[in-house]
């Protein structure tokens, strides 16, 4: 691993530790729950940043894994009465879904825009399906699916093995921050590994990678599955601070996550995390203004970002800083 990578990983861990220690002590409950939502969204953005920015796979339906993670968590936790086994199961379900979907896409040699269309369609099918599960006949074991209303009774995480020790919103925030930092570090490590470097090479030129003896399909499937897993984790955390409902699969979220990654900077990991938090914050704030549609603001920001900082916030800012430094230096 390069020195720069090591510094970035240590910085991320320290930053997460500070946020996790300080914010729960100073923030009000409402702010903290909102912050947990932001963190789960940042994890979702990170999952897309990994597969789009580094795998070159533009997945328009990353929310499919987000929603599957949430629903799998809620359904399993309701059935088992606690979250100890619900979490691993809720990670496995979206990862396996990504594996299966990815298998058909990549081994079917589907690429580019068709991947976007297929993944978007899958998330919309899930959205429609979850939406049409109203009524008592729609349940998995003890868990009612609830149609458009989702599952408001989504249980909170508890300390593994101790069903009575339900985590407080403060503790869930800390867990979410640890998850975000872990996913960031995991992504860094994956990208620094032999596997990750070949994934990037395939993004650069799939034909050349194959002529060098790499089966591109396997590598794309691998990174897509990791992305599904991380997206699922985001869904579990979201389920813990809101509750699961079909909106998790919706076009609204699948569009937003793409905007977060674009504005933050495709090809970086930290950019999309910042992009998700900033834009979430901005849309939440805009939602409180009278007579303003937050989506219109989001649209304007996207247009401005594409026009003024086509590489995204983080690469753009880095370039500006570099120019300033060169300008100041003798």
């Amino acid at each position: 691993m390069s020195r720069r990578n090591a510094i970035e990983i240590v910085t991320a861990a320290l930053l997460a530790a500070v946020v996790a220690l300080v914010l729960p002590r100073v923030a009000e409950l409402f702010v903290l729950i909102n912050a947990t939502v932001f963190v789960s969204m940042a994890i979702l953005a990170l999952s897309l940043a990994l597969i789009w920015g580094f795998g070159g796979i533009l997945c328009f339906g990353q929310t499919a894994f987000f929603g599957l993670g949430g629903y799998a968590y809620a359904v399993t936790a309701l059935n088992l009465g606690e979250s100890t086994y619900a979490v691993p199961i809720a990670l496995a379900v979206p990862a396996l879904a990504a594996l299966a979907l990815g298998y058909f896409m990549f081994y079917g040699r589907i690429s580019d825009v068709y991947i976007g269309a297929i993944t978007l369609t899958v998330s919309l099918i899930l959205f429609n399906f979850a939406n049409s599960t109203a009524g008592d006949q729609w349940h998995i074991g003890e868990a009612p699916l609830g149609g458009f209303n989702g599952i408001p009774s989504t249980p909170q995480l508890n300390i593994p093995g101790d069903p009575d020790a339900t985590l407080s919103p403060q503790a869930i925030f800390v867990v979410a921050v640890i998850c975000l930092a872990s996913c960031y570090i995991l992504s860094k490590l994956v990208l620094a590994s032999r596997f990750g470097r070949i994934v990037v090479a395939i993004r650069e030129n799939e034909a050349r990678a194959e002529l060098l003896g790499y089966d591109a399909r396997r590598y794309k499937l691998g990174i897509f599955t990791v992305g599904g897993l991380i997206g699922g984790l985001a869904g579990i955390l979201f389920a813990n601070c809101v509750f699961v409902s079909p909106t998790m699969f919706s076009l609204f979220y699948s569009g937003q996550v793409i905007i977060w990654v674009m504005v933050g900077g495709v090809g970086t990991l930290f950019g999309p995390i910042v992009g998700a938090m900033l834009l979430q914050g901005l849309t939440t704030w805009a939602g409180t203004l009278p007579g303003i549609n937050p989506n219109a603001i989001l649209g304007v920001i996207l247009m401005l970002a594409v026009l003024l900082m086509p590489t995204g916030l983080l690469p753009g800012a880095t370039a500006v800083l570099g120019r300033l430094r060169r300008g100041i230096a003798p």
Binding site: V200, A201, E204, N205, A207, A209, E210, L211, L212
Partner: peptide, 29 residues
């Protein structure tokens, strides 16, 4: 990719390279 694995090096007509990577990293791949 399977042909390449049998010990065949292939150079295409239009140079097919990893444009975003350094020369060294391309060689490493």
């Amino acid at each position: 990719f399977a042909v390449a694995r049998l010990g065949v090096g292939i150079k295409t007509q239009v140079p097919s390279l990893f444009d975003g990577l350094s020369v060294q990293e391309g060689l490493m791949i």
